[in-house]
Each structure stands twice: as C-alpha cells, then as structure tokens.
Amino acid sequence: METVNMHEAKTHLSKLVDKASKGESIIIAKAGRPMVRLVAFDAPEEKPKKRIGFMKGQGTFPEDFKAVGREEIEEMFGLSE
C-alpha cells in the first residue's frame, strides 16, 4: 500500500487514480498522518429509469375521453353555434 502526502496527491492525482483503478490501494496523508484511502469504486452500472408506461393498468379513461370538456372549450373560443 503506497502512502503519498497531500501535495503529491494533488500533483499526481490522475496517476494515482489509474493505479487505484488497477486494484492498488493508496493512502493520502496530511502532515504525515493518514487521512484517506484511495481505492477503486466498483459500482454496478446505473440503469435508466423507466418512465413511459409506469402507471399502466392503474387507471381507466372514459370512452369519450376526447369529448370531455368539449362544450366548455368551444364556448371559451366562441366556436359554439
């Protein structure tokens, strides 16, 4: 396990991250005192959230859905005869 000081870690962060991603564990110290450990993060890939159809089957629509409110709309726009 490699130990590096804070200044060295800031200067060589990308190299240290490469080492960590290959399985090596690195300790970052401040004034000689170990503060954190840099290790690879193995997280499962995040799946995109399914949005379309998420409420399928949880409600019903009236047969004349497109006609709901038609009279009021026609009145508002002066379309009624």
Rank of each mutant, 00 (worst) to 15 (best):
A67M: 12
F61K: 15
E75F: 10
G53P: 10
P48E: 10
Q58G: 03
I52N: 06
L16C: 00
L16D: 10
G53C: 01
D64V: 04
K56V: 00
L38M: 06
D64P: 11
P62W: 00
E74R: 15
E46H: 10
S25W: 09
G53R: 09
E81I: 02
L38K: 01
K19H: 04
S14L: 08
E75N: 11
F41Y: 11
V68C: 07
R51K: 11
K50P: 00
A40E: 04
K30S: 14
A43H: 09
G57N: 06
L38N: 01
T11F: 14
F77N: 09
G59M: 11
F77M: 14
K56F: 02
P48Q: 05
M1L: 05
A31K: 15
T3H: 09
K49E: 13
M6F: 15
S25V: 07
M1C: 12
A40D: 03
M76C: 14
D64F: 02
A31V: 13
E81D: 12
P34K: 05
P44N: 03
K19F: 00
I28E: 05
F61N: 13
A29I: 01
P34S: 04
K22Y: 05
K10Y: 09
G59H: 13
S21P: 00
A31R: 14
Q58T: 03
H7V: 09
I27C: 12
K49M: 07
D64N: 12
D18L: 06
V17Y: 05
F77H: 14
A67C: 06
G23Q: 00
G32C: 08
P44F: 03
K15R: 12
V17S: 04
P62Y: 03
I26D: 00
V17W: 01
T60V: 10
K66S: 10
R51L: 13
F54K: 13
I52F: 09
K47Y: 00
D18Q: 10
G32I: 03
K10P: 01
K19S: 14
M76R: 15
R37K: 12
I52G: 04
A29N: 07
K49L: 09
D42T: 05
F41V: 12
E2K: 14
M6Y: 13
K10M: 02
H7Q: 13
I26C: 01
E45D: 03
I26M: 06
A20S: 00
V68R: 15
M6S: 06
A9N: 03
K19L: 06
L13S: 10
S14M: 09
D64Y: 05
L38A: 01
R51Y: 15
G78M: 11
L16A: 00
M6E: 13
G69S: 07
P44C: 01
F61I: 12
K56H: 10
P62R: 13
K30H: 14
D64T: 02
H12P: 00
A9G: 01
G23V: 01
D64S: 01
M76A: 14
R70C: 08
M55Q: 13
A40G: 03
R51V: 10
K47M: 06
A20D: 00
P48M: 07
S25L: 09
A67H: 14
I28Q: 07
K47N: 02
E2W: 06
S25H: 09
A43W: 02
D42C: 04
K56Y: 08
M55R: 11
D18R: 08
E75H: 14
N5A: 08
M76I: 15
A40I: 02
Q58H: 06
R33Q: 15
H12W: 04
S25A: 12
